[in-house]
Simulated assay, not measured.
Amino acid sequence: MIRGFTLILLFWILGESLHFLSGIPISGNVLGMLLLFGWLMIRQQVSPELERSSQLLIAQLSLLLLPGGVGLFFLGDRMQGQWLPVLAAIVIGTLLSMLFCVWLMKRLSHKVDTPKEAG
């Protein structure tokens, strides 16, 4: 499992380095995730260590997202008058994410051919 976490950290560091050195306006976290995705697409397989480590992180995802939500609670004064744009961004972002996931799932999933009945 240490190998899986090391691999995730390595790609995170690569993404942060790429962001820092190139000035690309994309977060280093996202760049690292894209690099990891590209590497996995080239390899065409996920190692058991990486799978176990990522499942462990996914199980704790709510803990990783909780501080951001709590931070919004304490920004009430600054956020006054900004709730409509924030709400619109959340709703539109969620809908676009869902649509993209459905499109991607349809595109990447293999169609299973059902045998035709003899008639």
Rank of each mutant, 00 (worst) to 15 (best):
T114A: 05
W103L: 09
P85K: 10
L40F: 07
L104N: 01
D77R: 02
L96I: 05
P85N: 03
Q45R: 15
F73N: 06
L108K: 14
L56F: 14
P85S: 06
L10N: 04
M105T: 14
L7T: 13
W83T: 11
L72P: 09
L36M: 08
R3G: 08
G38M: 09
I58Q: 06
F20G: 04
L64R: 05
P25E: 03
K106D: 08
S62G: 06
V70T: 07
Q44C: 08
G81D: 06
I58K: 07
L84R: 15
M105I: 12
F20S: 07
F37H: 12
E49V: 04
L61A: 15
Q80W: 03
E51N: 06
S97F: 06
S54K: 07
G81T: 05
L87H: 12
E16A: 05
L56W: 15
V102K: 15
W103H: 13
P67G: 01
S62K: 08
F74V: 11
P25S: 03
S62M: 08
L31I: 11
E117L: 05
G4K: 00
S27R: 06
I90T: 13
S97D: 03
F73P: 02
L61G: 12
L40N: 09
A118M: 09
L84F: 10
G4I: 00
M33L: 15
N29G: 10
G81P: 07
D77G: 03
G38F: 12
A88V: 14
F11H: 06
L104H: 02
P48E: 07
